[in-house]
């Protein structure tokens, strides 16, 4: 990574931290404490399942909300406040700016997820009194959640490069929701014929396949995640994010900053 991308990324991270984005960790910590105590009292033999399900779902929701609501302002806010002028008049290429913003927010989310993961494991230890071998699956689910974040940050950044924050939020959130049903869409496309099939298949593959990145239920039941899926999801998320970022750069490279 070039020095300039690193500086822009660390400034984006610092901005998020100083804008108190990481305060969500307090809410998450309270949620996990409450859940662990409550589950310990009312659940019989399913404490682990409830804690893993609740913890990972909360991490995913908190992260997606942060990814969308910060991501949509990454470019448009800089244009609106004109902070971009003093950056792009320096030897900073426009693609470096987009890349720096992407890595900065992705870094923020990874740090956020790291602290939340500690909370989940602490709650697991509280309810189970020991770790099991199948708990390693929680790490895989967390990794997939981070891959989801990369895709959502790239999408939010893409919309932010040409649209208003409100529209960007709507587009990014809509794609995330549709993406959670991506497997169903692909199944539906397979049932159609002719031109419809082409259209439906195209649309199904265009939306991010968020559903493939969701293994929360599987790991909560202690089922292993296939190594092949880890490889496939890694490749898919990186490629999808890179393509969306490339689109964002392409648009931003030609944009007049009035």
């Amino acid at each position: 990574m070039s020095g300039r991308i690193l500086h822009i990324a660390s400034n984006t991270f610092r901005e998020a931290v100083r804008d108190r984005v990481l305060y969500n960790l307090i809410v998450f910590a309270l949620l996990m404490c409450g859940a662990a105590i409550l589950v310990g009292q009312i659940s019989i033999d399913i404490e682990r399942l409830v804690v893993v399900n609740l913890g990972l779902t909360a991490i995913s929701i908190f992260g997606i909300v942060i990814a969308i609501f910060i991501g949509i302002g990454l470019v448009s806010k800089e244009i609106e406040k004109r902070t971009l002028y003093t950056v792009l008049s320096r030897p900073v290429r426009r693609w470096e700016f987009i890349a720096g913003k992407f890595f900065g927010l992705a870094g923020t989310l990874i740090v956020n997820t790291f602290f939340m993961a500690i909370g989940v494991f602490a709650a697991l230890l509280y309810v189970s009194h020991h770790f099991q071998a199948s708990d390693a699956g929680v790490l895989v689910a967390l990794y997939f959640i981070i891959l989801q974040f990369l895709i959502i940050v790239a999408l939010a950044l893409f919309f932010s490069s040409f649209s208003s924050p409100l529209l960007s939020a709507i587009f990014a959130f809509a794609l995330f929701i549709i993406g959670t049903f991506a497997e169903d869409l692909r199944g539906f496309a397979a049932l159609t014929h002719g031109a419809e099939r082409w259209l439906a298949t195209g649309a199904a593959y265009l939306v991010p396949n968020i559903s493939a990145l969701n293994v929360i239920s599987q790991v909560a039941h202690g089922e292993p995640v296939a190594g092949q899926l880890i490889l496939y999801n890694t490749g898919y998320a990186l490629l999808y994010s890179a393509m969306v970022l490339f689109g964002a750069i392409l648009i931003f490279e030609h944009r007049n900053l009035k």
Binding site: N11, R14, R82, T83, T86, R90, P91
Partner: peptide, 18 residues
């Protein structure tokens, strides 16, 4: 060239968290 020029925009606004 950009490394050798300086620019002050009109009514500048900077990252106010810094």
């Amino acid at each position: 060239m950009q490394a050798q020029i300086g620019f002050l925009p009109e009514q500048p606004y900077f990252y106010d968290h810094l």
